[in-house]
Design a protein around this nucleic acid. Structure first.
Length: 265
DNA sequence: ATGCCTTATTTCATAAGA
């Protein structure tokens, strides 16, 4: 199975690139974030001809997540258990079972700045994510939580740690929230970069940051141990960040061999 | 650089992103 996650920064603005990328990469399951459209407005007709079924969860202008699958999509869950809001719950998480793997597409709140109400919301949201995963994991040996976590796991995951002092994405409470997810029995599937030494997944649009490789690794795949053991390759598709009209995030692609008894039953 | 791009919308200005 080929599994991918991509913050597309508006799925409707990205339709041509998304279709080209799906056709070239042929992932079985795709987690999308920042679709920025309601579930009704999702461009279903653009991806169905490629063989994908779609489960979407949207707010309209902001947020929005979706799952695409060409290996089936059942037991769709929109939102987390006791999900906090800002102030109302937002469309930031969708889960489904695809080809025997329980998959979540998540878009963790940004936080804006430490001390901001949005930062407290971010930490509360990560707690709700942990609680939801804790309840589901025992029943699903093949499990993956994928998406834009808006947290860089370590200082090696930002291009210059000195630039981020006092900023969100690198604070101890955010990183502890990631550690609590891993403590449930999940593993960070670190992709290989296609160029340079570190697998950044996000580069700001401004100031030529992509060209200078001034990026961050904030798009993550957290897999259960059996699924992580079955990974045969993982990479950041930085080619998708190039050219005209890209998202500011690159997709992460993970290949897993499910033939070795990973799936239940 | 506390906004250097980009997005969608209550559009020719704003809010949000990380």
């Amino acid at each position: 199975m080929r599994l991918a996650t991509w913050n597309v920064n508006s799925v409707t603005a990205r339709v041509p690139r998304l279709v080209d990328w799906l056709s070239a990469t042929r992932p079985d399951v795709v987690c999308l974030q920042e679709t920025k459209c309601s579930a009704d407005a999702f461009p279903y007709d653009a991806v169905r001809p490629l063989g994908y079924e779609v489960a979407a969860h949207g707010d309209g202008r902001w947020n929005g997540v979706a799952l695409l699958s060409r290996v089936g999509i059942t037991d769709v869950t929109r939102g987390l258990r006791d999900e906090p809001g800002f102030p109302a719950p937002e469309a930031r998480a969708i889960g489904a079972t695809c080809g025997g793997v329980r998959v979540w597409s998540v878009y963790v709140p940004n936080g804006r700045e430490p001390g901001h109400d949005h930062y407290a919301y971010k930490l509360a949201w990560l707690t709700a994510l942990r609680d939801t995963m804790a309840a589901e994991l025992p029943g699903h040996p093949a499990y993956a939580v994928c998406g834009d976590f808006n947290v860089a796991p370590s200082d090696d995951d930002v291009w210059d740690p000195s630039v981020f002092v006092g900023s969100t994405h690198v604070t101890a409470p955010e990183r502890e929230a990631l550690a609590e997810l891993l403590a449930l029995g999940l593993r960070d599937v670190v992709p290989r970069p296609l160029k340079y030494d570190r697998p950044f997944t996000y580069w700001d649009y401004r100031a030529g940051m992509f060209h200078r490789n001034e990026g961050m690794r904030i798009d993550l795949v957290y897999a259960s141990e059996p699924l992580a053991d079955a990974v045969t390759d993982a990479y950041v598709d930085r080619e998708a960040r190039k050219g005209k009209g890209p998202s500011d995030h690159a997709p992460v692609v993970v290949d897993v061999d499910l033939a070795e008894g990973v799936l239940p039953g």
